[in-house]
């Protein structure tokens, strides 16, 4: 119930200005429409029960007292509930700091049997770049993960790394971002390009991503926007792919 309370609080305290700023980030994100459909999500929506598992590392959570309630998975859940009235939406987060793609891939079966998701949102890449995992090994982990997720009748949305201007020259993410993009195209999976979206936000001035701060203000708003954009991707993806009985997959 806690997320709903927070959502209500947001509604009560949120002014028109906040709402306007919120939409600014949606506009500035540019095109985020998915390249491929999400047939299992469409099926789940038709059955009025949509389970989503978010598998990721530290950037799928936020530290601090409000922590998980303001991180993007919660915002995704809230937005999906309002976009899909009558559908029981449940988003479960399996985020562990420093976890790399191969470790996530290894625990996918447990997550799938536990959450029974129609969609796995797989956020990865940063930990692999920090630990210097061989990009080829990273690519294979993603590929095997797609096999596991699809075998369990679920769709997958990849989420790549955050755009972090301060650390960009020190953390070589390109090889990992390329691997994610290429696997997504090859396996016809949706890529939620968090890196490009956040970069556009930074360039257009919607968010100042290089300012130092101890508060979670910016983080909170970034996650809010990411959650809402992701909800839009999920709904659009489901519309792109009608339920399986109509012939997709």
């Amino acid at each position: 119930m806690k997320p709903i309370v927070v959502a209500l609080l947001c509604l009560l305290t949120g002014s028109a200005a906040v709402a306007k700023e919120g939409n600014e980030c949606i506009t500035a994100a540019g095109s985020t429409s998915p390249d491929f459909g999400l047939p299992h999500v469409a099926q789940a929506i038709a059955k009025k029960k949509l389970n989503i598992a978010v598998v990721g590392s530290a950037s799928s959570e936020l530290s601090g007292p409000a922590g998980t309630n303001i991180a993007y998975p919660t915002r995704l859940e809230e937005t999906l509930r309002s976009l899909l009235p009558g559908v029981a939406v449940k988003v479960t987060t399996y985020a562990r700091p420093r976890e790399v793609a191969s470790e996530m891939e290894a625990k996918l079966p447990r997550i799938i049997s536990e959450a029974k998701p129609a969609l796995v949102i797989w956020q990865t890449g940063t930990a692999d770049a920090i630990r210097g995992i061989d990009p080829e090994e990273f690519r294979v982990s993603l590929d095997d993960g797609v096999d596991k997720i699809r075998a369990a009748d679920a769709d997958v949305v990849f989420m790549n790394m955050q755009y972090s201007p301060r650390t960009e020259a020190m953390l070589a993410v390109t090889a990992y971002a390329d691997a994610m993009r290429i696997i997504a195209l090859k396996r016809e999976a949706v890529l939620f390009d968090r890196f490009t979206i956040m970069k556009r936000w930074n360039e257009s001035g919607v968010f100042d991503l290089y300012g130092a701060t101890r508060t979670t203000n910016v983080a909170e708003r970034v996650h809010d926007c990411l959650g809402r954009l992701l909800a839009d991707v999920v709904v659009t993806g489901a519309k792109l792919a009608p339920p399986a009985d109509k012939g997709t997959q």
Partner: peptide, 26 residues
Amino acid sequence: IYTAEISYVAHSFENPLYGEEMGIFD
């Protein structure tokens, strides 16, 4: 030179959004 730059950034930059990226300063 690299170590000097990264040490400077590690000490001058803090943002809860980038808890994960700060791992490169470990």
